[in-house]
Write a protein that binds this DNA or RNA. Structure first.
Lengths: 124, 124
DNA sequence: TCATATACCGAATATTTTTTCGGTATATGA
DNA sequence: TCATATACCGAAAAAATATTCGGTATATGA
């Protein structure tokens, strides 16, 4: 099968474990989108994270389901409909996401000055 | 030059900014090693993180210096000696590292059961 | 009829990250 | 003398990740 992670998560140490669950480019943003608890359709998530290629979101959502951070519901309709919702486990990561968000806001200027302007991407 | 990141950090959103500073495989572990404030020599860090290839630590330390998370002192001696110490900026990330560490400890069992045993790596 | 939207997947490509290997130079102790 | 340790770097290979493209199937509305 394509796109299978060799080692699903890193069990080397607790820190690496946590990191490995969220370090893929868009996972933290996905959690941030789902944090409110409202289930979202993939297309909705895509629209919120326009910088991310849809395929990557597919893959990362799938991994997050596998890891138990997100739950998927498929509605047997046509055209197809499915929804992703944050789980309790995923929710327990939100305080971490929050701190990172806050840290990023507080220190944005330093890095913008240092490495240039540009700004678009995810709407946090 | 080899091993230069195309985009030093991700300025798309505050969350990605923070993530991009620490998402490389060993950066969070390096911060965790340096958190106490005691400057460490590269060889010392290597010994604490035996799973990491020395070259990677070199590279990631260099990036962290560039990003301002870590400060480097070179002593003009022979054989060469240098030390890396966490900066105030790096220190401000420690609460995040801490939460991730704690989360990892609290949820280790789930993932160990799910994805297998194995345990070595960094000594947190 | 035809473009659009839906969710998802495989394959190929591109990019990034990590790792391995070899080399610089010099001091120390066996 | 010789292996070892020190810090660091470049190049190349390997591995992991991200991206792009095209395809499945079907309902809706123009």
């Amino acid at each position: 099968m394509a796109y299978e992670k060799k080692i699903p998560v890193d069990l080397d140490c607790p820190l690496r474990l946590t990191m490995s669950l969220i370090e893929s480019k868009w996972k933290s943003c996905i959690l941030d989108e789902l944090r409110a608890g409202k289930p979202m359709r993939p297309s909705e998530i895509h629209r919120c994270l326009p910088e991310a290629a849809p395929r990557v979101l597919d893959i990362q959502l799938k991994e997050m389901v596998e890891d138990g951070l997100v739950a998927k519901t498929i509605y047997p309709e046509l055209p197809p409909r499915s929804e992703y919702a944050i789980t309790d486990l995923g929710l327990s990561l939100i305080p971490i996401i929050d701190r990172m968000l806050k840290w990023g806001e507080e220190h944005f200027d330093i890095f913008e000055k240092k490495y240039g302007r540009k700004r678009s991407g995810c709407n946090s």
